[in-house]
Design a protein around this nucleic acid. Structure first.
Lengths: 335, 335
DNA sequence: TGACATAATGATAGCGCTGTCATTTATTAT
DNA sequence: ATAATAAATGACAGCGCTATCATTATGTCA
C-alpha cells in the first residue's frame, strides 16, 4: 500500500507538503497542489485513516447506543443520526445493547479508549456511571428520545407528559371513563413521564386513577397482546386502551379481536410513536407522532455543539408531538 | 490520559512487558502479569485503541452496508450481525447507503483506508467495481440476503426462486389462476430470482404468464398500495397478489380494502420476509419466512473465515425458508 | 555441576501521519 | 533596490503502541 512518502517522492516535495496539499488545500500553492494530487493518483495513494486518527486524535465517528435495533422507532431515529453524521463526514458505530448494562458499558468504553468522538444514547441509563469509569471531565454524550434524571446531560426529547395528557384528554372527550394503560418498563423515566400525563388528564377530568387499569409491557407485540387480555379480565373493564408504543398497540388490537371484541366499536386502542405501519393497520391506529428522524438529526447537531464546546445554554431541546387520530379510537360504548 | 509508559514505570517493567501482559497474558509470568494489572488499575490506564489499531493494522470492526436501515427486515439482519460481531469482539459500523451508488463507494473506501476489516453488504451492487477502486486483491466482503451475479463473491442467501415457486404453488392449489405480482426493482437479481420462481410455478401448473399482472415496487408500504390499485384495474383482475416483501403486502391489503374488496374473501394477499408484524395484521399475512437474524450470524461467520483465509470451498451458503400460511390467503373466489 | 533448551523480559525501531518550527521564496512597501 | 512582511515549503519529532530481536533468568538433563 502506497503511503504519503511515496507521493512525496513522486511529486518531488516533502511529506509535510503532501499532507497539507491533501488536508488543507488552501495553504499550498495551486501549482504544488496539482502536482501532489497527480502524484497521489499516479501511485494509487490511499491515506491510512488509522494513522491519521491516531495522530490527530479525532476518529470522526460517533457511537449510537440503542437498546434494540429491531424496534422500528429506533431504527428510524438511527437512520436520522446516520444521515446527519454522514453529512458532517462522520461514521456511526452501532451499539445494540439489548438493554444489558454490561454491554452498554463495554460500548461506552469505546469513548474512553478514543475509538469514538461522542455518543448518542437512546436509552435512559447513563452508561458511564461506575466509579471506574468516572474520569472527571464531562464526556460528549447526548441523550435522545428518553427522559433522563440527570439534569446535566444534554437531551433531545418529546414532552412525553404533555403528549400522554393530550391523548388521554382526547379519549376522555370521546366519552371514555375507564382507560387502560399498557405502560413501559416501570423503572424508565419515560414511562414515568407518560404515566404522569395520563394521571394529569384523568384528574383534570374528574376521573379517579385505578391502578388495576395499568399493566406493564416491554414494548413488544407479545406484551401488548398479553396486557390486553389482562385488562379485559379486570372488574369493570376499560373501554379504551392506551399503549406506550405502537407495537404493543398492534398486539393489544390482536388480543382484543381474539376475545371477539371489535376495535373501536367495543374498545378503543391508541399507541405512541406513530410508526408508518400504523396507518396501514386495520383499523388504522390512533397514535402520538414522534418526529423520529428529526430526533436523530437534532441529537447529532447537539453532539457536535457539545464536542466543539459551543453548546449554548439550552441543554435540553424539545421536539413537537402531534396526535394522529385514526380509526382505532371512537366514542365510548354506552353501558 | 495515562499511557503504557506510565504503567511500565509504575510496575517497574518495560513497556514491552506491559503490552504483553495486557495483550497476551499467557506469555508473561503470573507474577509480572499481576504486577502490571495492578499498576494499570492504579494509574487508571486506558489503552489507546487507535494507537493499537494503527500499529497492529487490525480495526476489529466490520462495516454493514445496507440500503435502508428503517426496513424492518434489514434491521433484524443487522441486529444479528451486530450480536455475532460483538461475540468476537468486533464493532459494527453502520453504512446506510439509501441505495446511492456514491454513498456505497464512500463507505467501501473505509475498507481501503484501513478503517474497517471487512464488509457485509445487504445490497446487490458490488461497491468496489470502479477501476479506481480496483486494487487487485480480493477484499473481505460477504453478500447477505441478496443474489449476486458475480459468482466469486461469498454469499448467504435464500433460494429465492424456490421460495417464490413454493408460495405460488400454494396459491395455485387454492384455486388461483390469475396471480398478480408486486415485484421489487427490475434491475435487482433478487427480483429476478423470485420472478423466475413465479414463472416456474405458473408453467408447471399449465398457467400462462401475463405481463400485465406484474407491477414493480420499491418495497415501501405506499408502493404496495399503488400496485394493488394498478392490478385491480387490469382486465380479468387477479384473485391473488404476491408481494415481494411484507411491507408492500400491507400496503396492498390496505389498497384492496379501500376498493371495498375483502381479503382473502375476494382477493388473497401474500408477502415475503415474514416480519413479526405479519402475524398481527388483520387478517394475518401469509408470507415466506426468512431467518433474518441468522442471516446476520452466518454472514459474520463467513466473513471471519474469509478474513482468516480459511473459507472452505463453499462460498455460497443457503438458509432455509418456510411458508408461513395465515389468514390473508384463501380459496380463489369462484367466478 | 555444566551444557543446553526454554521461558521471560528488555531495548528499540518504527507504523503513517500531522503539528511545530525553521527556512526559503514570493510579495509588497519604502 | 532594499527592507520588511507574508506565503509556501521543508525538516523532523513524536503520537502510543506492538513486533522483532537481543538478552537475561529459569528449568532440564546427563
Amino acid at each position: 500500500m502506497s503511503n504519503i512518502r511515496a507521493v512525496a517522492k513522486k511529486a518531488g516535495v516533502s511529506v509535510a507538503t503532501v499532507s497539507r496539499a491533501l488536508q488543507k488545500p488552501d495553504v499550498v500553492s495551486e501549482k504544488t497542489r496539482k502536482k501532489v494530487q497527480d502524484a497521489a493518483k499516479e501511485v494509487g495513494y490511499r491515506p491510512n485513516m488509522m494513522a491519521k486518527v491516531f495522530r490527530s486524535k479525532k476518529t470522526h465517528s460517533i457511537l449510537a447506543l440503542v437498546p434494540d435495533m429491531s424496534n422500528p422507532f429506533f431504527a428510524r431515529v438511527i437512520s436520522g443520526i446516520q444521515k446527519a453524521a454522514k453529512a458532517r463526514g462522520f461514521n456511526v458505530i452501532l451499539g445494540n445493547t439489548l438493554g444489558n448494562k454490561e454491554t452498554e458499558r463495554d460500548f461506552a468504553r469505546l469513548l474512553q479508549t478514543s475509538q469514538t468522538d461522542g455518543i448518542i444514547q437512546l436509552s435512559a441509563r447513563y452508561p458511564l456511571e461506575t466509579p471506574e469509569n468516572d474520569i472527571g471531565s464531562p464526556l460528549p454524550i447526548v441523550n435522545c428520545c428518553e427522559c433522563v434524571v440527570d439534569d446535566s446531560m444534554p437531551t433531545v426529547q418529546l414532552d412525553n407528559q404533555e403528549a400522554a395528557r393530550a391523548l388521554v384528554n382526547y379519549l376522555v372527550e370521546l366519552g371514555h371513563k375507564r382507560i387502560g394503560v399498557v405502560a413501559g418498563p416501570p423503572d424508565s423515566p419515560l414511562t414515568a413521564g407518560r404515566m404522569a400525563g395520563y394521571k394529569a388528564a384523568l384528574e383534570e377530568n374528574g376521573l379517579t386513577f385505578d391502578a388495576s387499569l395499568v399493566t406493564e409491557g416491554d414494548y413488544s407485540l407479545e406484551a401488548g397482546e398479553e396486557s390486553a387480555a389482562t385488562l379485559l379480565s379486570v372488574n369493570d373493564a376499560p373501554t379504551a386502551i392506551f399503549c406506550f408504543n405502537d407495537e404493543m398497540a398492534y398486539g393489544a388490537m390482536r388480543g382484543l379481536k381474539e376475545k371477539g371484541l371489535s376495535v373501536p366499536g367495543e374498545v378503543s386502542v391508541a399507541g405512541f410513536d406513530d410508526l408508518p405501519f400504523s396507518k396501514y393497520m386495520e383499523p388504522a391506529l390512533t397514535s402520538v407522532r414522534q418526529p423520529s428522524a428529526e430526533f436523530g438529526t437534532v441529537a447529532v447537531d447537539m453532539l457536535f455543539e457539545l464536542m466543539s464546546g459551543s453548546l449554548a445554554g439550552k441543554r435540553h431541546r424539545q421536539l413537537p408531538f402531534e396526535l394522529a387520530i385514526r380509526a382505532s379510537t371512537g366514542p365510548a360504548k354506552q353501558i
